[in-house]
Design a protein around this nucleic acid. Structure first.
Lengths: 232, 232
DNA sequence: AATTGTAATTGATTAATGTCAAACCACAGA
DNA sequence: TCTGTGGTTTGACATTAATCAATTACAATT
């Protein structure tokens, strides 16, 4: 592991509250590895052997069924994934693949469970992490069941604008076909949906989005912190 | 609280691992209350003041947006709901309403958080509860994004058949319009979908469902433990 | 500069799903 | 028994979204 990486991991909420001893123990058993793009790190249905920490790069979480595939999320540095499967010693419900060259820290799930059993600060941090994740998925379900694809796109663009600090224009952080899958639609449908937002002041040039007047778009999107909120 | 109720609650996985002292403490602060049908117990967006335990009756979890409404789940005895909001001291992302006369035990969320901070057995039990809940919602998301409404219905019927012990015929455990909402479709669409399953050996008479040959229906439904599993 | 591969777009079409209205049915209460 | 009420079903239709095919755009490579 690079000298700067261990402190970064330590500073994650998930690892902040545990004892120095137990953190060291986790780190001693950790593997660090770099992967090229398009590598399948985890396969849906396989047992979960490692808690994954993305320290650099980008990982896509995908789910499949009967030849169909959908993007469940994108993981960026520095954060973890498949925590639930790791602590429950269960099979993975999603596959994970690198989107670009990616550096991972892999904590053996068996170590994670062992430390989880003895370190109370860690087990409480896991609760927080899971509670936030759970509420995130509930929000996502509401988004899918209550909104049309156009409305989902409109709200996605508004939330991205916020993430970009409210700047009038910003770049899409992923390929459009991936965004389409994340939003639960086809690439063709996304392409048309983007056009359909033009009357609401959305201008698109390649990956660059410009929202002329947010309140215009909000009239359609009707964002709410009960769906579009971030952990609050 | 009735004499038989406290032991039942104690035997829930969530409360099994905590100390007797802390359990007593939670129970001393508990309210027990009965509600008639169609009472709104929790309103989406409100702060979460109590961890709810259904000891008798039936509660529906619903989410709304812009006048639209969808059923997110049904809670039956004996189990809890809004655990995540209670431990995080956050607003509720779903509303809850009684479907029939319902008896609830209400644990003040502030007590739950207090005990959570001091009782390590409890905090670990919360992890298990949340991890299972999280994985359940992930499964649900896959169900929604990867399957058509007909496929969701087919899989629902197969899982209900299993819950009924594999009996050839069984009763629907909820009104059809509620089932429709749970599956993410309209009542009209459900009605037609049921008919569309007739070629696959599904016979319906009111609330009674008969599946002539499961393997017939499975050819369409293609159930998998990665979507239709129960906590495994 | 030409070539290749992939993503993105566009148009035409089909399929899936929702909406609206009416009819039907079961059941509780008068 | 009658009668309202609300859930269910059905049909006609509208809307939404997926599919298929073709084209364009673009970036990487030769």
């Amino acid at each position: 592991m690079r000298p700067e990486e261990q402190p970064v991991i330590r500073s994650l909420p998930l690892f902040q509250q545990m004892t120095e001893d137990n953190f060291d123990r986790l780190m001693r058993g950790a593997y660090v590895q770099s992967f090229p793009p398009q590598v399948e790190l985890i396969t849906e249905g396989d047992p979960c052997d490692f808690l994954h920490i993305v320290v650099d790069g980008e990982v896509e979480l995908v789910a499949t069924w009967c030849g169909r595939e959908t993007t469940m999320g994108i993981v960026r540095p520095v954060s973890t994934f498949i925590l639930a499967a790791a602590v429950k010693d269960a099979v993975c419900l999603m596959s994970a693949r690198t989107l670009e060259k990616t550096r991972l820290v892999l904590l053996p799930a068996i170590d994670v469970r062992e430390v989880f059993e003895i370190d109370n600060g860690f087990s409480r941090a896991v609760v927080t992490e899971l509670a936030v994740a759970y509420r995130g998925v509930i929000r996502n379900t509401k988004n899918l069941k209550l909104r049309s694809s156009l409305e989902r796109l409109a709200n996605y663009l508004l939330s991205q604008k916020n993430l970009a600090g409210g700047a009038k224009s910003f770049e899409l952080v992923m390929e459009k076909r991936r965004l389409a899958s994340l939003l639960g639609m086809t690439p063709e449908n996304l392409s048309r949906a983007i056009k359909a937002l033009r009357p609401y002041g959305v201008k698109v040039d390649g990956n660059c989005i410009e929202i002329v007047d947010s309140s215009d778009l909000e009239r359609l999107a009707k964002p709410t912190h009960l769906i579009d909120g971030n952990g609050i």
